[in-house]
Design a protein around this nucleic acid. Structure first.
Length: 644
DNA sequence: GTCACTGTCGTTTTT
DNA sequence: CGACAGTGAC
């Protein structure tokens, strides 16, 4: 059974008496190694299934690991603790009787917005989405430093509100659980003793909170097996700390580092490009991926416009599909905005495709609207869901909701309780809303969530045009179907943590199209026969010009390239009809005689980090010198060094 | 006071 | 495209 492993993989599977950091290059059989390691532990009786903890970042990865473990062991995986950091933490919290409403990014922003209005702060200066992501950033970095006094106030009230709403945001799921472990020696020791082996996937993506959680689980007697690839760390924006992987061998002793450098996915040519680009990064442990597979040279293409690019890609895909309809094809891009033009052209060309990510099912308005009623019934203290649900109930507007907010402040209580005190005639609608939620609570006690959802839809939404549109109807139907046979707890968890638009199982379902559109982030961990990476323009990939993020942008490029098995197309365009672009610097890093890359042209508009937009009047090569007329700052001469 | 309609604006990546 | 502010009809 272990014969199919190469020497390095075998080592990684068999060493169980030390902590292990497995540096697994793209396509080097990472998941295989992890799952075989679990099998090895069980076969040799080193632990029982429930003594193994496997932590992943995405549900997709957790599902895949569950599947593959079940496959090679030919047994049920019910006894295993395999899941995302968030899902498992929530599960453990529930086991000790702690239940919370989960606020997703959108809910978070609503709460922040409420606080900003409450504090009378300028909404343009304090944009809820920016403030919300900054709050998350602060929580993930262990030192609490606030840019301004106002910000500090927002943060404090935000945390208080979560507490009084009996809610947690994504970060707090882990923070709460860590608190419990820190405050309860018995509990912590129980976990430490139970989990003899802790496997962590994508270790390069752990943030400070996740790192702290791992530390809580570790007692020196149990063993940590971390698998990761510093070159594929692309979540720093979310707080991932690449130092965690770089300093693993200091943190967990005794420790051994094993590198998996043989790639079974891509051709030599593709890996050459990937290796060439990534060696420009300084923050690395360092490795060199190699492959035995030969194939065609990757293609670099320039297009005048993004439409030309989309046309070319569609044409190529059509050709591939005509030759062999079994191969998998992906169009990858840095951000979701780029997908639209491809969707248009795919329709024109009659190419069936699936778009991954972008709009999550549980983020859809009609879903969130209906769910808000279930959530307020489930947890009366949930002010965010209160505002959303009462606003949709009908006949209750902003003025009334403002009145309720004032009462809640006076009585120092939640909105639902405040609203329950209103008995005057002019608040009859509010009383009806309260009554409705109470009926819903009774219905929820019986546990049939599907029926509750249908009840909410019939009573509140069914006569509104928006919710009667076909797409919304089918989404709502899907929600009701999804909830069947689910208890309220797992329904809430699934609705908050599980993005099942990403879990489409392409391999087992032949009716699904073989062409996928997605961001490079969403493509991580996946592989395709033919890959098109599009929009390789400065300002798109890399998306930002600061040095601090350039290495991360380069890793994103690297992740994209290493998704390809057989053929790879890299392309950029010079204009999207709003802006002009120059090719990505990453193309310059690989394009040594292959291709001539035109970087600047007389007459084109460029966007400079300090001077804004301007028109190029003259170009001199070697050394590069640009004469640019900036709209705001007038004439400037730029050399290579101050262009970016 | 509530609601539906209209125009404008921005948009990295995600558990 | 979707969120959001502003406007006018009931």
């Amino acid at each position: 059974m272990f014969d199919s492993l190469n020497d390095q993989q075998k080592k990684a599977v068999e060493i169980c008496d030390k902590n292990l950091l497995i540096i697994a290059g793209a396509g080097s059989g990472k998941t295989k190694t992890l799952t075989y390691k679990i099998a090895y532990i069980l076969k040799n009786n080193l632990a029982k299934p429930w003594e193994i903890l496997a932590l992943t970042f995405t549900n997709k990865a957790a599902d895949e690991m569950k599947d593959r473990v079940a496959n090679i062991l030919d047994t049920s995986i019910d006894n295993f603790y395999i899941g995302t950091f968030h899902a498992l933490s929530l599960r453990f919290l529930r086991q000790i009787g702690k239940k919370y409403t989960i606020y997703d990014k959108h809910d978070q922003e609503m709460l922040v917005k409420e606080i900003i209005t409450y504090l009378n702060l300028d909404k343009n200066k304090f944009q809820p989405s920016k403030v919300a992501s900054y709050i998350s950033k602060i929580k993930n970095s262990s030192n609490l430093e606030f840019p301004t006094k106002e910000f500090e106030r927002i943060y404090k009230i935000y945390e208080e509100k979560l507490e009084s709403n009996n809610a947690v945001d994504f970060d707090n799921i882990l923070i709460k659980f860590i608190e419990e472990l820190k405050n309860n020696d018995k509990l912590r020791q129980n976990f430490q003793n139970q989990f003899k082996f802790i496997l962590i996937d994508e270790y390069q993506d752990t943030n400070n909170i996740q790192y702290e959680l791992i530390k809580e689980f570790y007692n020196g007697d149990n063993r940590i097996f971390a698998v990761g690839d510093e070159d594929q760390s692309i979540y720093a924006f979310r707080g991932a700390n690449i130092n965690n992987i770089l300093s693993f061998s200091n943190d967990f002793l005794p420790c051994e580092i094993i590198k998996l450098e043989k790639n079974y996915r891509s051709t030599k040519n593709i890996l050459n490009i990937a290796n060439t680009i990534i060696t420009h990064n300084k923050t690395r442990i360092g490795k060199n991926l190699y492959s035995d597979i030969s194939g065609v040279e990757p293609v670099i293409k320039e297009f005048a416009t993004n439409k030309d690019e989309a046309y070319f890609v569609s044409n190529q895909i059509k050709n591939i599909l005509m030759q062999n309809d079994n191969s998998s094809i992906a169009v990858l891009y840095r951000n979701n905005n780029l997908s639209r033009i491809f969707e248009e052209y795919f329709m024109q060309f009659g190419i069936a495709y699936k778009k991954i990510g972008a709009h999550k099912f549980f983020d859809k308005k009609e879903i969130k609207d209906i769910l808000s009623f279930i959530k307020i019934a489930y947890n009366e203290k949930d002010d965010v869901s209160f505002i959303r649900s009462i606003g949709n109930f009908g006949g209750i507007g902003l003025k009334t909701i403002d009145d309720i907010k004032k009462i809640a402040i006076d009585l120092n209580t939640n909105l639902f309780i405040a609203a329950s005190t209103l008995t005057q005639k002019k608040y009859a609608k509010v009383a009806r809303f309260i009554e409705f939620v109470k009926i819903l609570q009774k219905k929820l006690e019986f546990g049939n969530i599907s029926e509750c959802l249908k009840f909410v839809f019939d009573e509140v939404f069914s006569d509104k045009n928006f919710y009667r549109q076909d797409i919304r109807q089918s989404n709502i139907g899907e929600l009701i179907e999804f909830a069947k046979n689910m208890d309220i707890e797992s329904f809430m968890e699934n609705a908050s943590l599980y993005d099942y638009s990403q879990s489409i199982d392409g391999e087992n379902n032949l009716s699904l199209p073989n062409v996928s559109l997605m961001t490079i982030h969403a493509a991580k961990g996946l592989e395709f026969d033919h890959v098109f990476i599009v929009g390789l323009n400065e300002g798109i990939l890399p998306s930002l010009y600061q040095d601090s993020v350039i290495e991360e942008e380069r890793r994103i490029m690297y992740v994209g390239i290493t998704r390809a098995k057989k053929t790879l197309y890299l392309s950029y365009y010079l204009s999207d009809f709003h802006n002009s672009f120059i090719p990505s610097r990453f193309l310059k890093e690989i394009a040594v005689n292959k291709t001539q890359l035109k970087r600047y042209r007389i007459g084109e508009t460029i966007n400079h980090k300090d001077f804004g937009k301007g028109i190029i009047l003259n170009v001199k090569e070697k050394p590069l010198e640009l004469k640019v007329n900036f709209f705001k700052y007038g004439l400037k001469i730029l050399t290579e060094n101050d262009i970016f």
